[in-house]
Design a protein around this nucleic acid. Structure first.
Lengths: 225, 225
DNA sequence: TCTTGGGTTAACGGCATGTGAACTGTGGTT
DNA sequence: AACCACAGTTCACATGCCGTTAACCCAAGA
């Protein structure tokens, strides 16, 4: 699979930069927001693998944000962890009630942060993106080797195609909007033309077969298992 | 939280084994039964987090089983999902009013199964309670996949029809004025002719049946549940 | 009977998507 | 440096679905 994406939400620019620096250095794609509302909005766009939420924030705090995130169907696959200062015990409880998967204590130590993040994402990888497992579709996606097994034949796809396929196939049946796809595969900042996604979809259809990819007009694309 | 438990009820041993294998591999505790009666009995014992019920079974079918389960206070917390074959005769599933939370179409694809199971359990974990997408009419609307399950059959509707249906069905019984509908589905700025809504309603009536949509003359339309 | 509101059908046309080819940049090879 | 292969994007044009409209019908009430 491609890099995994993390959404980092904290109102203090210093902390934001510090954490982002450490995560980027490890090869994660990091999106940032400075308050809960912004964070939730961005999350809906990029569908990150992991969301790190500061608890204390202006506008909308972490717990509220988490609640909203958990109510959003498309974000059910995302893992949520709180960043919480030592001694804010109540926040842990409220946090878990809101549906968080973990919490990480401030002050942040890079080593600790990374190992926790890795652990959380490993857990997701096990069930989330792709199991390297035959699933009856004749398709096997091997994120480690960047290779797709199609009815026993090994296909190596270019990066973008592979990532697009991985995204769609991560939740068969679910429709991904063009916006979602752009944000996940291309990134929020990159701007590409309207037809780019289509062309990549077409290449995948050529290589794997029409039957896997369904167009939902006006909405997006979905992978059918 | 410890491992989550799943009760799997299906009369075909092959399918049972196949699904069990995939769930166990992901770390779930899986109990199995081969007919509805057995399933209900076992459910009362183990109080599983999630119950997967095949619809077609000897002795006691999935719908009956689901009804019994829903009547049992100790099983209120359990999520129930049907396993239903694509295109299964509608009369068999007419009893969908039994209170299921979700449905999963056969043939089962491991990855689809897992992501759905994961989503359902995550939702349970987050809220402790799952309010089904189910509204007691034989209709289930799935905005994630942009499909409607109508008595066991998957229907994919065009965008406008889907949104109109979603709106009306969101509050069964409530009358939506034409003005309401226009504002919600088309947007406040867009101006369309008088007959446009009617035409869409008609298409929905064609596809789903007259009985769901009632005209309230001079006022608007409502969805009847 | 006239009016008002909704139902029905077919046909039109726009727009989202499909498609083939050209263009650009990059990395590797000789 | 010249060349090549390939990924990624864009462009121009084709296509077909979907949304809308228009014209007409029917029913109910004034």
């Amino acid at each position: 699979m491609g890099k995994q994406s993390i959404l980092l939400v904290d109102d203090e620019p210093d902390i934001l930069d510090f954490i982002k620096y450490n995560l980027v250095k490890e090869g994660y794609i990091v999106h940032t927001a400075t308050n809960g509302r912004e964070g939730v909005a961005l999350a809906k766009k990029v569908l990150p693998d992991l969301i790190l939420l500061d608890v204390m924030m202006p506008e909308m705090d972490g717990v509220e944000a988490c609640t909203e995130i958990r109510e959003h169907k498309s974000l059910r696959q995302s893992i949520v962890a709180f960043l919480t200062a030592r001694g804010e015990d109540y926040s842990q409880i409220a946090g878990f009630e809101a549906g968080a998967d973990d919490y990480i204590l401030k002050p942040i130590k890079p080593r600790v942060l990374l190992s926790r993040v890795q652990a959380l994402l490993r857990r997701k990888k096990a069930t989330g993106y792709v199991g390297g497992d035959y699933d009856g579709t004749g398709l096997m996606i091997d994120p480690d080797r960047y290779v797709v097994l199609h009815h026993g034949k090994e296909l190596s796809l270019p990066k973008k195609e592979f990532e697009l396929l991985s995204l769609l196939a991560s939740q068969p049946g679910r429709v991904f909007s063009r916006e979602n796809i752009l944000a996940s595969v291309w990134g929020t900042d990159v701007v590409v033309g309207d037809r780019t996604i289509d062309v990549h979809i077409r290449k995948l259809r050529e290589k794997l077969g029409e039957q896997y990819f369904r167009t939902v007009k006006g909405v997006g694309y979905k992978f059918v298992g």
